[in-house]
């Protein structure tokens, strides 16, 4: 039931230009052209991949947190399971990441099911606290069980050179297109979701759980499927991440810092909107590139975190709905 659209323009003839279609298409076209403009080996392509991975994580989180209102601080769990799962299966069993990534997503969905069952009776802050506990707990375990995870140092994916079956490449170009496909797919999915029955169920639950139940929305099931969809998307992004960086460590997977970074794109761009995480993620990467450059020049470390913190603070205090959000909400 994906086409239950009730667009605002319903029945009203509009002669205006449809920016909601033109802008995304133009952005995608420009992105496809990027490698031909800057060169296929460019440092810029690497940054673009980093940005799109960042955006994809934001898009995944946005499904359950932005649209569904379930403030998960535990998405590092799904990201970590996807990334570690893919890497471990490849290193120890030689399983191709194409399958490993899917298995990682399946594992992640199973974890999401357990997490949901354990935490969805809890609302608001209690839910957030429970998810952060699960994430931090996995971080400790990942640091301890060195045999499986490589401990503090993390896990390096065995590099076998350019190979399609191992999803490895010296050039960032394949990753550029893979992550572009992922971001576009997630964007289209989010837009369709927002106009689908399931999307409306999620939004109803976000706005008011009791009113949602009183309207016939199965609250628990809605939250559960929202978390499962979001977890699967997060894990697939984790798999792509580990193929690109060829490494993963407990902090990058399960740390609180990661949990917060996952939230930033949607928060800045606009919670619960399709374009929000894309714009927010792009801004974050710009900021992080500038601060990294400054850090290198001034030898002061942590400027990026300071900037993230400051941006988060400013957004939450002054633009609570994010750049694309209707600021009325929560204001």
């Amino acid at each position: 039931m994906s086409d239950t659209a009730m667009s605002p323009a319903n029945g009203v003839a509009t002669s205006r230009i449809n920016w909601r279609l033109i802008v995304p298409v133009a952005v995608i076209a420009l992105m496809v052209l990027l490698p031909f403009v800057v060169g296929t080996q460019s440092y810029l392509l690497g940054i673009a991949v980093r940005a799109m991975l960042f955006i994809a994580l934001g898009q995944a989180w946005n499904v359950v947190a932005g649209i569904g209102g379930q403030l998960s601080l535990g998405h590092g769990v799904f990201f970590g399971v996807g990334a570690y799962g893919t890497a471990i299966l490849f290193n120890s069993l030689g399983l191709t990441p194409w399958v490993g990534g899917v298995l990682g997503a399946v594992a992640s969905i199973a974890v999401a099911g357990l997490m949901g069952a354990a935490t969805f009776r809890l609302r608001g802050v209690y839910f957030a606290l429970a998810t952060v506990a699960i994430s931090l707990c996995l971080e400790k375990l990942a640091r301890h069980f060195i045999g499986i995870t490589g401990g503090d140092a993390g896990l390096a994916v065995r590099f076998i050179g350019d190979s399609l079956s191992a999803a490895q490449s010296r050039s960032p170009l394949p990753f550029f297109f893979a992550s572009l496909v992922m971001v576009v797919a997630y964007y289209v999915l989010t837009r369709r979701l927002l106009r689908s029955n399931f999307g409306y169920q999620l939004q109803a639950v976000r706005d008011d759980e009791e009113a949602a139940a009183a309207s016939g929305v199965p609250v628990f099931r809605t939250k559960m499927w929202g978390l499962i969809l979001s977890a699967g998307m997060t894990a697939l992004t984790g798999a792509l991440y580990v193929q690109f960086y060829l490494a993963i460590d407990p902090g990058a997977a399960f740390g609180l810092g990661q949990a917060i970074q996952i939230q930033l794109p949607s928060l800045i761009g606009g919670l619960g909107t399709a374009g929000g995480p894309v714009i927010g993620g792009a801004i974050m990467i710009l900021v992080s590139e500038v601060t990294n450059w400054l850090s290198a020049r001034t030898a002061i470390h942590g400027l990026d975190i300071l900037a993230y913190g400051a941006i988060l603070l400013i957004v939450v205090m002054f633009v609570p709905g994010g750049l694309l959000g209707r600021t009325r909400r929560g204001a």
Binding site: T4, M6, P8, N10, N197, Y200, Q201, Q203, A204, R206, D207, D208, E210, A211, A212, A214, S215, G216, V217, G272, R326, R329
Partner: peptide, 20 residues
């Protein structure tokens, strides 16, 4: 009164209609 504040009048009513 408890409505879905981020959704329009029409959407508020349609949600219930869809479920039932």
């Amino acid at each position: 009164v408890r409505l879905f504040e981020s959704l329009t009048t029409q959407e508020n009513i349609a949600i219930a209609a869809m479920q039932c």
